[in-house]
Amino acid sequence: MKITQLVVHCADTPNDRDVTAEDIHQWHIQRKWAGIGYHRVIRRNGVIEQGRPEYWEGAHVKGYNSTTLGVCLIGRDQFTDAQMQSLERVLQEWKAKYPNAEVCGHRDLDPHKTCPNFDVKGWWAKVKGNRYENA
């Protein structure tokens, strides 16, 4: 599978509600989908949970699933420091495997979406810049 983009999502659940990968898996099955569409889920406390295996095409960005991996932050628009640290870890891990893949938000691939409700490209540029400055 040729991965060209690493896509950040949010669950669009209340910011104070903890949700698991298993919860999302059940919601997606109820919609008659083949289970959870994301490859990773990051809970409110920063715990990273496995979604679909990376070798299994995701179901998270219409028209892009065959060339993307998806990570979902639990919440709507206020993510915890622990979540953001875990997001950085997941993306670093994926970038090591897929160095040419672009980091982006769902909204960058679908203009009808606001998910994940922050500028992923801008955030990632700052993360990368800080990492090199502090190295």
Score class of each variant (00 low, 15 high):
Met1Cys: 07
Thr4Tyr: 10
Gln5His: 15
Leu6Trp: 04
Leu6Cys: 11
His9Ile: 09
Ala11Ser: 09
Asp12Thr: 02
Asp12Ala: 02
Thr13Leu: 11
Pro14Ile: 03
Asp16Ala: 06
Asp18Leu: 07
Asp18Ile: 06
Val19Cys: 13
Val19Leu: 13
Ile24Met: 15
Trp27Asn: 14
His28Phe: 11
Ile29Asp: 06
Arg31Val: 04
Ala34Tyr: 05
Ala34His: 09
Gly35Phe: 01
Gly35Trp: 04
Ile36Asn: 01
Gly37Leu: 03
Ile42Thr: 12
Asn45Gln: 07
Asn45Leu: 03
Glu49Tyr: 07
Gln50Cys: 01
Gln50Glu: 01
Gln50Trp: 01
Gln50Leu: 02
Gly51Glu: 00
Pro53Ala: 00
Trp56Leu: 02
Trp56Asn: 01
Glu57Trp: 05
Glu57Gln: 13
Glu57Val: 04
Gly58Pro: 02
Ala59Ile: 06
Val61Gln: 08
Lys62Tyr: 07
Lys62Trp: 05
Gly63Lys: 06
Gly63Met: 03
Asn65His: 10
Gly70Met: 07
Cys72Gly: 10
Cys72Trp: 02
Gly75Arg: 10
Arg76Trp: 11
Asp77Pro: 05
Phe79Gln: 10
Gln83Trp: 10
Gln85His: 08
Ser86Leu: 04
Glu88His: 04
Arg89Lys: 07
Arg89Thr: 04
Val90Arg: 00
Val90Asp: 02
Leu91Met: 06
Trp94Cys: 10
Trp94Thr: 14
Lys95Tyr: 02
Ala96Lys: 11
Lys97Ala: 02
Tyr98Leu: 01
Cys104His: 09
Gly105Ser: 13
Gly105Phe: 03
Asp108Arg: 11
Pro111Val: 11
Lys113Leu: 06
Phe118Gln: 14
Phe118Val: 08
Asp119Phe: 02
Val120Met: 01
Gly122Phe: 02
Trp123Met: 11
Trp123Leu: 12
Ala125Thr: 11
Ala125Lys: 11
Lys126Thr: 13
Val127His: 14
Lys128Asp: 00
Lys128Asn: 00
Gly129Gln: 14
Arg131Ile: 00
Tyr132Gln: 15
Glu133Thr: 11
Asn134Asp: 09
